[in-house]
Each structure stands twice: as structure tokens, then as C-alpha cells.
Design a protein around this nucleic acid. Structure first.
Lengths: 245, 245
DNA sequence: CGGAGGATTGATGCTGTTCAAGCGTAGTGG
DNA sequence: CCACTACGCTTGAACAGCATCAATCCTCCG
């Protein structure tokens, strides 16, 4: 088999070095560099934190469990979801490096969270975290602001789930994911999709078949290119028009 | 026409005295008694506030407008919504006495808010409000918690919009509204519906026709009783089962 | 009485679901 | 190296739930 017969199979996604390793030599940074937090505030938090590592499919916490911890994701991706008694599932979102989980700091978790692949995060004991915040109004404000953005995205999702077609949902999802990847400094030509089709379906309020069909059609129309483990956004403009904000 | 021939038309909903009048004699309480806030914290806020009054259909603020204010509703009801360029609308929620609006305190409002009927609210200048919070970590925490609940309800909405049938949506909506009315101390036998069918439809991701048909069917099945301006929840258990949490 | 606006009801159609089969790749063991 | 399985994804055909279009009704109000 000559070197030229190597299949066109695109290169796997370059492994992004976990953020906590990017910082320097002697000091290990636990809180993801992708966070919105200023350095000083991260420094205030770090002493409280402990590392956690999860393998694929392991769960970080379950819905309605007592929320003893707050988390900051440092590498990998998680899915956040709720399940109805009869098994119907709504994936409320996905978490990536830099994201905080459990920020609302209620007594119990509002959703379940499990790992889509290997994940590292740092964990804060919730009560200690809250004590710290009481003395750091600036940091508290900042976390409040982050939560405000989360709430705003939740309203985007309501619009998407309540009023948009399948095509629009998929397009919006892809564009949104790309935007998020850019913010955390990942290459934006090709989108890694660490979640499966079923996760996407349960996120967008569709079935796996509809997701698959829509992906296929977008591929056929040269709007996207389906590659193993992700998609390449080919016709960015058309996607943007479809997601029609 | 004898007194007995007076139509069975139920009595109009008893006007709930605006909360700010319930407080005492010499001191006018601006912040709604229905708030979750402890008295001491309300006292800290009040000096900053100014009353606002709206007539039906007047708007309190528009989506993407610079958010110069934060509000606390004292009487009446508002609808909160977003609109797509092509006119599709998602009503993200309704606001009742005690509710805070604009609590995420981002630079711009995430949704539009307008009055479903006469409304009074109290307005806080956002920056002054934030300054005050910096000195009141307990109050800040409290508002954060309120926002946490809002986020949790937003996730309920995602589940509802993404995964539930029309019947379930209506049942869940009615049960949820009742629960809210109970919390703010309103009679719970008969539900006032200050919003129109179209508002409900745009809230639940349905069309006005589907909402109307579902209401009619529930009425026919003696599950609810449609009365002018609202509904009476007759078969509470069946509704609860339909909303199937 | 007449008009306006919201709500209801009916007939029809479409989008996305459901059910079912087939495909591709990865992993395993002979 | 090749079966064999497992799992996720894709594709097709038929169906259903809700949307759309359109007409009518009801109630409030001038």
C-alpha cells in the first residue's frame, strides 16, 4: 500500500492541551484558562479547588442530588440533561473547558451531567465557595454575569425549541458551537462533535433520524461536510442565513 | 328578570389589592410583598426605587435596549418575549407581582416586556442597584438564588418545548400557573388567565388553534372549566398526571 | 345595531415521527 | 487475516400530531 493510497479520512482532531497545563512551569493552574474570570479572581478561587477526572460516560452529578460542589471544566466535554419518568430526555446543553457547572448554587442540581469523553474539572466545596464569595463582591458579580449569559442562552433555546424548524435548529446549533469553540480558542474550520447524534437530537427537540437526515442533506447540498467525529462548515453564509437571527 | 335568572357567569376575579398598599399606614412599601426577599433587604432597596405604572399593552422595555433599570413588579402581569425577524415569537415567560425583571443585569435586556393589563412596578437604576449590592453580599446572594430558580424554570421550559405533547404542555402550564398564584397568595380554585390564547400558544410553542382546541377538549372532558377570563381546574389529579413530572 | 378583536371549530396538508431495515467502522477472538 | 458482533449512523416508507387555511361565533363596546 503506497503512501498515496492512504484514505482521505481526515486527520483526527488535534488534541487540545488541557488548559491547566498551558500556564507555566512551576505552578499548576487548575481553573481553565478559557474562563471569563480575570486572573486575580481565579487566584482567589484556586486554593479552594480539587481536581476531578472522569472517563467517558461517567457522571459528574445527577439531577436532584444535593449540590455539595461547584465545578469548573478544564478539559473535555459534558452533556447536561434532564429525563422524564417515561424516558424522554432533554439535553439542556453541553459544557466545555472554561464553563462553570452548578453556578446557581441551589441546594440540588437542576440537571445531570456526564462526560462525553475523558474530562477533567476542578471542584469547589459549595459552602466554602459561597463563603469566599461573600468577601469578594467583584467575583460574585462576575459569576452572576456568567449566569446571566447562561440565562440568555436558555431563552435562545426556548425560541429554538418552540419556534424553529429542524433545519434552522441544526444550523443554529452548528453556528453556536463554532462560536463557542472560537471563544475557547479552538480551530474553527472543522467542528469536532464530541456528542452523538442522539445527544444532538435530544438537545434540539428532534429525533435521531431527523438529525441524521438533515446532516445528510446539508452535506449533499455542500453546506457542510460530514467527517468522522465532526463536521466541516463549508457554506458558512448559508448556514448563517438558515440560523436567521 | 328575577335574581335567580342571573347567568351562571362566574364572578369576576376579585381584584387583589396591590401589595404596596398592604403594608401599613404611614409608610408606603414599594417592593412587592410577594418577593422572596426578607424585610431587611427590601428596606435596603427601597430608597433606590421609583414607581412606574403601565397601561395594557404598554411596554416596560424592549429586547436589546440598553438595560438602565431593574424592576420589581408590584401589581398586574407582563409577558416577556423575543421575536424573530420574520415575526415568529417566543413568549419566554410571564411576570407577576413579586417578580424581578432584568436581574441578570447585563448591559442589554434579553427580552421585551409588556403589560397584559394595568401594571405597577418599581424601578431601580441599574448601576446604583449594583453599587448597593456590592456592599450587601447577603442581598446579592439572594438575588443570585432567585436567578438560579429562574434558570431552573428555563430548563423546565426546554424540556416542555422539546419533548412534550400539546396536552402535556397545556396541563403543565396550568399547573405551574396555579402553583405560582398560590405562592403569591391568590385564590387557587379558579385561575385567572391575564394573557390571551395567542400568548399562551407562543409561550408553549403551539398555535392558537391548538391551544384553543386543547382547552375545549379538556373542558368537554370535565378536566377544566373554561370561564370568562380564566379557567377553573376541575380534575386536578388528571391534570397533574398529564403534566407528568 | 354594527363593528372589532379574540376565540372556536372544521377540513386539509405538511413536517417531523415512528417503525424497520441496512450500512460502516471498531473491536474481539479464532 | 478474517469472521463475528456491537454500536452508532443512515435511509426508506408509512403515519400522526400539529399547523395552516378558512369560516363562524362570541363578547364587548361604541
Amino acid at each position: 500500500m503506497s503512501i498515496h493510497s492512504i484514505p482521505v479520512r481526515p486527520v483526527p482532531f488535534p488534541a487540545v492541551a488541557p488548559a491547566y497545563q498551558c500556564d507555566g512551569v512551576d505552578k499548576v493552574r487548575l481553573i481553565s484558562l478559557a474562563t471569563d474570570l480575570p486572573l486575580a479572581e481565579r487566584d482567589a478561587l484556586e486554593p479552594l479547588s480539587r481536581r476531578v477526572a472522569l472517563d467517558q460516560k461517567q457522571t459528574l452529578y445527577g439531577q436532584d442530588e444535593p449540590a455539595v460542589s461547584v465545578f469548573n471544566v478544564t478539559s473535555g466535554a459534558l452533556r447536561l440533561y434532564r429525563i422524564l419518568p417515561d424516558g424522554r430526555r432533554q439535553v439542556t446543553g453541553f459544557a466545555f473547558p472554561g464553563d462553570f457547572l452548578g453556578l446557581s448554587m441551589l441546594d440540588r442540581f437542576a440537571v445531570s451531567a456526564d462526560a462525553l469523553g475523558p474530562v477533567t474539572a476542578c471542584r469547589f466545596e459549595r459552602l466554602a465557595f459561597m463563603d469566599l464569595l461573600r468577601g469578594q463582591p467583584g467575583l460574585m458579580m462576575h459569576l452572576h454575569e456568567i449566569m446571566g449569559h447562561e440565562l440568555s442562552r436558555a431563552k435562545d433555546m426556548m425560541m429554538l425549541l418552540g419556534r424553529r424548524t429542524a433545519d434552522e435548529r441544526i444550523a443554529t446549533f452548528l453556528m453556536g458551537l463554532q462560536e463557542r469553540y472560537v471563544r475557547i480558542g479552538r480551530s474553527s474550520v472543522t467542528l469536532e462533535l464530541p456528542m452523538g447524534r442522539l445527544d444532538i437530537a435530544d438537545h434540539l427537540g428532534l429525533t435521531i433520524e431527523t438529525v441524521s437526515r438533515t446532516f445528510s442533506r446539508l452535506d449533499r447540498d455542500h453546506c457542510i461536510l460530514i467527517v468522522p467525529g465532526g463536521v466541516r462548515l463549508v457554506d458558512h453564509d448559508r448556514l448563517a442565513r438558515m440560523s436567521a437571527h
